[in-house]
Simulated assay, not measured.
Amino acid sequence: MAEWLNILLRSIGLFILVLLFARLMGKRQTSRMTFFDLITVIVIGVLTAAISLNLVNVLANGLIALAVWVFAPIGMYYLSIKSKMIRDIVQGRETVLVNHGKVLEDKLMEVRYTPEDLLSQLRKKNVFNFADVEFAIMEPSGEVSVLLKKDKQPITAKTLGVSVGHESVPQTVILDGVMMDEPLTAMGLNRQWLHTELEKIGVAPENVFIAQVDSAGQLYVDLFNDAIITPKPKTKDLLYVTLKKCQADCELYALGTKKKNAKKIYQESALELTEILDELEPLLKK
Rank of each mutant, 00 (worst) to 15 (best):
T30C: 13
M33K: 10
K27M: 08
F71W: 02
M25G: 04
I39W: 12
N61L: 08
I39K: 08
V68K: 04
A22F: 08
T34S: 13
I64L: 06
A72W: 09
I44S: 06
A22Q: 04
I51W: 10
L55P: 03
G62D: 02
D37Y: 06
A72Q: 06
R28L: 05
R23T: 04
G26R: 00
I42K: 10
N57D: 13
L66D: 02
I39M: 14
L55A: 05
T30E: 13
L53V: 06
S52F: 02
A65R: 03
A22V: 04
A72P: 02
M33V: 11
Q29C: 12
G62C: 06
N61I: 06
T40K: 07
N57G: 13
I44Q: 07
T40D: 12
V70A: 05
S31I: 03
L53W: 06
G45I: 10
V56L: 05
L53Q: 13
L63W: 01
N54Q: 07
R28G: 11
A60T: 13
F36C: 06
I44P: 05
V56I: 09
D37T: 05
A72S: 09
G62L: 05
V46K: 06
L24R: 00
L59T: 12
D37H: 08
L38S: 12
V41R: 02
G26V: 02
V70M: 03
A50C: 10
M25L: 09
F35R: 15
A72Y: 07
M33P: 14
L66E: 03
G62E: 02
L55Y: 03
L53K: 08
A65K: 04
F36E: 04
I42R: 09
V43Q: 10
N57P: 09
F36A: 11
I64K: 00
G26C: 02
M33G: 10
I42E: 12
A49E: 13
R32P: 14
K27Y: 09
V70N: 04
R23M: 03
L55R: 04
T34F: 07
V70Y: 00
G45S: 14
K27Q: 12
T30W: 13
A67G: 01
S52G: 02
N57Q: 12
T30Y: 14
W69R: 03
I64E: 00
I51A: 07
T30G: 15
G62R: 02
F35C: 14
L47Y: 14
A72F: 13
T30S: 15
W69N: 07
I51K: 09
A22I: 05
F35Y: 14
V41P: 03
W69S: 06
A49G: 15
I42M: 15
T40Y: 08
T48G: 14
T40C: 14
G26M: 01
